[in-house]
Design a protein around this nucleic acid. Structure first.
Lengths: 234, 234
DNA sequence: AGGATTTGTGTACAAATTACACGTTGTTTG
DNA sequence: CAAACAACGTGTAATTTGTACACAAATCCT
């Protein structure tokens, strides 16, 4: 340990930070689990279990197990909380400010996940866990708002050039639903005609009616993602 | 701890992994420090201090101090190793496979840094530390090759839409130097005329001759980054 | 001095982005 | 049930960006 660290320790003592065990650093993972429903991007949150954050919501997370790979931990958390196995999950970054956790030093690695809220496997057993509209989330426990924002930013970038958002939709969907989804993620309105053109340029989609000979002007036309494109992990 | 973790512990015992203290997880940072010289992208490496990797090179890193923010640690490492203070540094990701470190469980967070090799402040004191051509690096100690590749990938993406690469160049440079730099980062050849057009579209650069009335056809024309655009941290 | 190489600049074509209009289907409602 | 309204599906023109490619002046090499 450097003398600098010792100085910081003295500072901590002077500030009477005595309830912390700063020399035993905890490691956790936190999951930002996104869903999509009623034209709104949602995030799965749980009531904070700390007195300090009694009224606040927090991300789903856990300390990592000594014998589990870091990148495996979020899968475990997701399985425990949602019952889902085969999910899109991606590491976003690690957050390790000294005082980010009130009861001790914990460094956390954040992951973001995209799941289909209407998935039949999905089981939110714990009644302390709820879906929240992302746009309405103003404040969270710990630095979880910052973490959520980082994940949202990553999602926005990724949604533009990889077919990840389809993890949020059912197998079949209309272009309108897809556009609503993109709008809720990006937080902006998109031109309907240009959006359709741009999507078809990427050639990710399969027109479910295309086998039938030209059926023109059918509102609510359904599409699905071409097989092999669905990203569950990266 | 979950029963799953206990099972893994039993497995470890069965495999006679006795020299590890897997229940005390270490936390480190590793820095992928890029430089640019003689038209080649370089990376700063140090001889591994572990027997297991006696012949191999490794990234510059250190365990974090108990009283230091995670994102501050790489600045400390860089200051100690290069003498540089004001550097571009960005977190890339965390690597935490159980068996990534032979002498115990260590989770590391990787950062990439861009520095000017010809910076007068730069002092590589330690003679175990050397610059290596990135393209020639085949294997490193631990999982450091994987980490370096992740940082290189990030650099490639970032170089395309943010003016980060100028941290690798002196204040004044020719477009030829800039193109060589981009080519060494991306690993591909670029068309000279199209590269110039693309760069000028971004309007990052300031033509040092532009105040003088039209001086045509001057090879080796110098440019510099517009003030306020240099990114040292993100 | 002459030839090869490098530097600076510009043009023509293809592809993608943006702005914008029309006819049809489905829904609401008086 | 029909008229008014909203949403759906498709297309076209103008602009911007990307790509391929050619020539003249300056520098380098022998």
């Amino acid at each position: 340990m450097t003398t600098e660290a010792l100085n910081r320790l003295k500072t901590a003592e002077a500030e009477k930070i005595t309830h912390l065990d700063y020399f035993n650093i905890g490691i956790s993972v936190d999951c930002v689990i996104f869903g999509f429903e009623k034209k709104e991007l949602k995030v799965l949150l749980i009531k904070s279990d700390l007195e300090e954050f009694a009224d606040k919501w927090s991300l789903l997370g856990d300390l990592i197990d000594p014998f589990e790979d870091l990148d495996s931990a979020p899968y475990r958390v997701l399985k425990q909380r949602t019952g889902l196995d085969d999910v899109f999950l991606q590491q976003v970054g690690s957050f390790g400010e000294v005082k980010r956790h009130p009861s001790g030093r914990v460094i956390t690695t954040a992951y973001y996940s995209l799941i289909n809220i209407r998935n039949h496997q999905l089981k939110i057993t714990d009644n302390e866990v709820h879906w929240h509209t992302v746009a309405d989330v103003k404040d969270l426990a710990f630095d979880h708002k910052k973490i959520m924002d980082a994940c949202l930013k990553r999602l926005r970038v990724q949604a533009m050039d990889e077919p990840v958002v389809f993890n949020l939709l059912p197998e079949k969907f209309s272009l309108r639903e897809l556009q609503d989804l993109y709008q809720s993620i990006l937080g902006i309105k998109l031109d309907r005609r240009n959006f359709r053109k741009k999507i078809s340029l990427k050639s990710w989609l399969h027109d479910l009616d295309e086998m039938e000979n030209n059926v023109p002007h059918r509102p609510g036309k359904l599409y699905k993602l071409k097989t092999g494109l669905k990203t569950t992990t990266l």
